[in-house]
Computed example of a mutant assay.
Amino acid sequence: MPDRWTAVAALADPSRRALYDHVRHQDHPVTREEAADAAGISRGLAAFHLDKLVDAGLLRARYQAPSDQPRGRGRSPKVYEPAGDGLAVTVPERRYELIAEILADAVVDDPAHADDAARRLAGQRGRSLGAGLAEDGCDVLSALGGLGFEPRPDAQRRVLLHNCPFHALATRHTALVCGLNHAFLTGLLDGLGAADVEARLAPRPGACCVELNLPS
C-alpha cells in the first residue's frame, strides 16, 4: 500500500496523472513507448514520470519481452502495470473500509446474529491491529493518531478523540457504528498492552463517540 500523501504528490503533475490513468485502463502491461504515445510526450519524459509513479507505489515495473521476440534476442523492454487497489484520501481521515470489512465478515460468520458477530469481530480486529502496532513501538496516542482519531489528552486524564473515522456511517446508524467503534478501540487498547486505559462511550457533536480514561 503506497503512502497516500506521497502518491497524491506524485499525481499532482498532469502528464504523470495522464500516464497513470492510461496504465490503469489497459488490460496488458504498458511499455514506455506506448505510454509516451498515449500522453503525447517524449519517450524519455514518459520514462521519467513512469518511474516516479513506481517510486510512489502506484505502479509496478518489470522487464518483459514482446510475444513475437525470439528468446534471448535483444533487451526486453520495461513495462508498467498498476500496483495495489487504488488510492483514497480524505481530510479529515475516514476509514469506511474497516467498518465494511467487519460487517461483511460478520454476515458471513454468523448471519443470524450478525450484530453480535460484528462487535466480536471489531474487538478482534482492534486487538490484532494493536498488537502489530505495539511491535512497531507505537504507544496509545501514536496508534490512535495513525488511525485518524486525532487524540488530545486533557487535564482530567482523558484522551478526547476529535475525529470520527466513520463519521458518515455513524451519523446514519449511530448505535451500530458507535458500538463497533467502542469494541474496536477496546480491542486496540488490549492489543497495545494498555488494558488499564478505559474506552467508554461519550458522544460529542462533531467528534468521536468514544473517549479514553487514563489510569490515575
Rank of each mutant, 00 (worst) to 15 (best):
58 L>H: 05
141 L>R: 11
87 L>S: 10
142 S>C: 14
145 G>W: 05
131 A>K: 07
101 E>L: 13
191 G>C: 14
192 L>H: 13
143 A>L: 13
44 G>L: 03
200 R>N: 02
38 A>V: 05
213 N>M: 05
10 A>G: 04
118 A>E: 03
64 Q>V: 14
34 E>D: 04
14 P>M: 08
160 L>E: 13
171 T>I: 12
38 A>T: 12
51 D>A: 08
19 L>T: 04
206 G>T: 04
124 Q>D: 15
64 Q>N: 09
73 R>E: 15
133 L>D: 02
158 R>C: 15
3 D>N: 13
48 F>G: 06
151 P>A: 00
88 A>S: 08
46 A>P: 11
83 A>P: 07
28 H>I: 01
123 G>M: 04
169 L>T: 13
124 Q>L: 14
166 F>T: 03
193 G>I: 01
26 Q>S: 10
156 Q>I: 08
75 R>M: 09
198 E>H: 00
3 D>P: 08
85 D>C: 05
31 T>N: 07
194 A>P: 06
194 A>K: 06
166 F>G: 03
120 R>I: 07
40 G>E: 10
55 D>L: 14
8 V>I: 09
150 E>H: 02
178 C>N: 15
10 A>E: 02
209 C>M: 13
160 L>V: 15
173 H>L: 12
38 A>H: 11
200 R>Q: 04
131 A>G: 13
145 G>A: 12
173 H>I: 04
6 T>A: 13
74 G>M: 07
121 L>N: 11
155 A>V: 07
215 P>S: 04
95 R>G: 13
209 C>Y: 06
47 A>H: 04
137 G>M: 00
12 A>I: 05
104 A>Y: 01
185 L>N: 04
85 D>Q: 03
199 A>P: 00
212 L>N: 01
21 D>R: 14
147 L>I: 05
188 L>V: 03
47 A>Y: 11
24 R>S: 02
133 L>N: 01
47 A>K: 11
11 L>P: 07
124 Q>E: 15
190 D>P: 05
148 G>E: 11
3 D>L: 13
30 V>R: 03
153 P>G: 00
150 E>P: 02
85 D>E: 11
114 A>S: 14
74 G>E: 07
84 G>S: 11
132 G>K: 08
23 V>P: 06
167 H>T: 06
102 I>G: 09
189 L>H: 02
214 L>D: 07
81 E>P: 10
136 D>W: 03
183 A>Y: 02
27 D>G: 15
69 Q>R: 15
24 R>W: 10
34 E>P: 01
44 G>I: 06
151 P>M: 00
209 C>E: 09
118 A>N: 08
181 N>C: 00
49 H>W: 09
136 D>V: 02
139 D>Q: 05
29 P>S: 09
112 A>R: 13
97 E>N: 04
33 E>K: 08
164 C>M: 14
141 L>T: 01
172 R>Q: 15
60 R>D: 09
184 F>P: 01
136 D>I: 04
123 G>Q: 06
202 A>T: 03
62 R>Q: 12
46 A>Q: 10
155 A>K: 00
118 A>C: 01
43 R>T: 08
103 L>Y: 06
134 A>G: 02
51 D>T: 05
197 V>M: 07
38 A>N: 02
100 A>Q: 08
107 V>L: 10
104 A>P: 05
13 D>K: 09
162 H>C: 02
137 G>L: 00
152 R>E: 12
164 C>I: 11
58 L>P: 11
187 G>S: 00
126 G>P: 12
55 D>Y: 09
28 H>W: 10
